[in-house]
């Protein structure tokens, strides 16, 4: 039985902290950072990276296209 692991790479400077990605994430992975980027926005980050399944919902809804998504299948023996 393979498990799916994903990762989200956020373009910190491109993110405007709208929070739409946080809302659509089915696994509650993303959150808005307490810190701000150079333009003063609380950018998105992976609060809970282990839960990410790489479904790309966050990337699809991001208005500023600042999310890049990776996904990999992990065999049970490798965990």
């Amino acid at each position: 039985m393979a498990k799916v692991r994903g990762a989200v790479v956020v373009d910190k400077e491109g993110c405007k902290g709208c929070g739409v990605c946080v809302e659509v994430c089915p696994q509650d992975v993303l959150s808005l950072n307490r810190e701000v980027n150079s333009r003063g926005y609380h950018y998105s980050y992976m609060k809970n990276p282990e839960a990410c399944i790489g479904c790309s919902n966050c990337g699809v809804v991001c208005p500023d296209t600042c999310l890049t998504i990776y996904r990999v299948k992990v065999l049970e023996s490798e965990i």
Binding site: G6, G54, S56, T65, T68, I69
Partner: peptide, 13 residues
């Protein structure tokens, strides 16, 4: 180990 070009599923057009 996940963030590798071969695992890319979504990126900016």
């Amino acid at each position: 180990d996940i963030i590798k070009p071969e695992n890319l599923v979504y990126k900016k057009s």
